[in-house]
Design a protein around this nucleic acid. Structure first.
Length: 480
RNA sequence: CGGGGCGUGGCUCAGCCUGGUAGAGCACCGCGUUUGGGACGCGGGGGUCGUGGGUUCAAAUCCCUCCGCCCCGACCA
């Protein structure tokens, strides 16, 4: 009988999430450092796979990695008006070092636009220096009021891209390229999480940005999770940090900058999109262990026969599959089955004396828990079978998540419908309101406009709130 | 920052109301039997009861102080 270690989603979704994080050994709340977590080996291994896949895309689109300081002079944060307003309340400051008060406090970076802006102003002289396409992998700190592992922690790990361009059109092109070719492509293909690409409203955009684009995903409780953002900063930061260049006509111009980031929050998205009441479910492409082998035997004689078959079987997996042979002898097979299910390993191979005799193995797929996903298959051709299965599971997870999102998305035409729909998922509505209207709706429904999708229907309708005719549709949802 | 809850072996908690010198389950260690969906028996180790003070012959228990954590809201990648 399975132990009652994971709260059922239907009972308490929030507790279920925390149980998965704990039981899959992804992270632990670092109770000695407020709001922070320790990312444990399994969690970090997933992040490393995410980093690798993202980094490839970031480099393929022409960017190079750099590293800026963790500490930023406090005055830098104060230079861009909206930026100050957005981040000042949540920065941590360093006021003492070397045993004395600092003349000017540093802040621990909540994001690096300001310090990067300072250096870009030194580095950029001519249009020939542009575009400047840099990215950094870093940890940042935001003193959030309320934290949850991965979804919102005081310290988190991310990449932040920062680019500078000669024209507004180039900056806009960059912002959208990142959204499509890096973020949406990564999240949908690697994470198997479908996203809606869109533009943030004025209320929701990044502090200091001209425009913020985002990808939004739906979690299994119908709430939205912002999975990535790409900002066109216009000339706002260039003006604040004096990032100028001389153009072809020998005229001094402010540069057009962008910034974009995704964080360890994506691990939260991964959990809340695919996992079930049995534990974590990982898309094969991001599973640190794709196949686990559980050998089964009663005595030394059986053990050597089984292990010989395991060695033969796994020999051709090297370089093709990420696998682990669980040969611990202090745990029973049943214990191991459950443990690897909790940890989300996509495929499990069980091999015992009966299989050795019949030249078969038991193959279990994680996305179909229990007996449904378990079958006995021949050892011959197993590697190809597993590779095909992993690929099939990757697709199946995406399709399942997409079907779920579509089933929990509805067009609403009245405010009453909107209120009801955000209780269960995304509400798609025509919108012609302003920021004040948006705030009022948030107060009344706890839902916000997640984005103005880039894909619009091309027809007009009446705004769900003001009743005005408009051709713009938006997505309302409660967000994490 | 408002509202609530909780600090007792590694973990989850009981004991507190009604004061009498600390317990369970899990985990861990040893030995043996086990091993195809979270094995079992026997033996064993481990706790300044968050901190400081007070009341008392006696405090995990009653009173006060401080600290920390968690949950629910408002704010946010």
């Amino acid at each position: 009988m399975p132990k009652d270690v994971i709260t059922q989603r239907s009972v308490d979704y929030n507790q279920w999430y925390l149980d998965i994080v704990r039981e899959a050994d992804l992270a632990e709340v670092a109770e000695v450092v407020r709001g922070c977590i320790v990312v444990k080996a399994h969690g970090w291994a997933i992040w490393e796979l995410m980093q690798r896949a993202l980094d490839e895309r970031i480099k393929a689109t022409g960017h190079a990695n750099v590293q800026f300081p963790l500490l930023i002079p406090k005055s830098f944060i104060m230079k861009e008006a909206q930026h100050v307003e957005g981040f000042a309340p949540e920065v941590a400051e360093v006021t003492r070092a070397g045993g004395e008060e600092l003349a000017e406090p540093y802040v621990i970076r909540p994001t690096s636009e300001t310090i990067i802006g300072y250096f870009y102003s030194k580095w950029i002289r001519s249009y020939r220096d542009l575009p400047l396409l840099y990215n950094q992998w870093a940890n940042v700190m935001r003193w959030e009021m309320r934290t949850r592992p991965f979804l919102r922690t005081a310290e988190f790990w991310w990449q932040e891209g920062h680019t500078a361009h000669a024209t507004e059109a180039e900056a806009e092109e960059e912002t959208l390229r990142i959204l499509h070719e890096v973020y949406a492509d990564f999240v949908e293909k690697e994470m198997a999480v479908p996203v809606i690409r869109g533009l943030k409203t004025e209320k929701e955009k990044f502090p200091g940005a001209l425009r913020s684009y985002c990808i939004e995903a739906m979690m299994q409780d119908g709430r939205a999770l912002q999975a990535g953002t790409s900002h066109n900063l216009g000339q706002n930061f260039a003006r604040a940090f004096d990032i100028t260049f001389t153009d072809q006509n020998n005229t001094i111009q402010y540069a057009w900058t962008t910034s974009w980031g995704v964080s360890t929050r994506l691990i939260g998205a991964l959990i809340m999109t695919h996992s079930d009441d049995e534990g974590l479910v990982l898309p094969p492409r991001l599973a640190p262990i794709q196949v686990v082998v559980v050998p089964i035997y009663k005595n030394d004689e059986e053990r050597s026969a089984v292990m010989a078959a395991v060695t033969r079987m796994t020999a051709e997996w090297k370089g093709r599959l990420r696998f682990k042979v669980d040969d611990r002898d202090n745990y029973s097979p049943g214990y191991k089955f459950n443990e690897w299910e909790l940890k989300g390993v996509p495929v499990r191979i069980e091999i015992g004396p009966k299989d050795v005799a019949k030249e078969t193995v038991a193959l279990a797929r994680r996305d179909l828990p229990g007996k449904t996903g378990k079958s006995f298959v021949p050892q011959a051709g197993l590697t190809e079978r597993i590779e095909a299965l992993l690929s099939e599971m990757q697709t199946a997870l995406f399709q399942r998540a997409l079907a779920f999102r579509e089933a929990h998305t509805a067009d609403v035409t009245t405010y009453e419908e909107l209120k009801a729909q955000v209780e269960r998922g995304f509400a798609r509505a025509f919108w012609a309101g302003d920021t004040a209207d948006e705030k009022r709706i948030q107060e009344e429904t706890r839902a916000t406009i997640r984005c103005i999708p880039l894909e619009q229907p091309g027809i007009t309708g009446r705004c769900v709130y003001t009743g005005r005719e408009t051709d713009r549709q938006v997505i309302f949802a409660r967000a994490y």
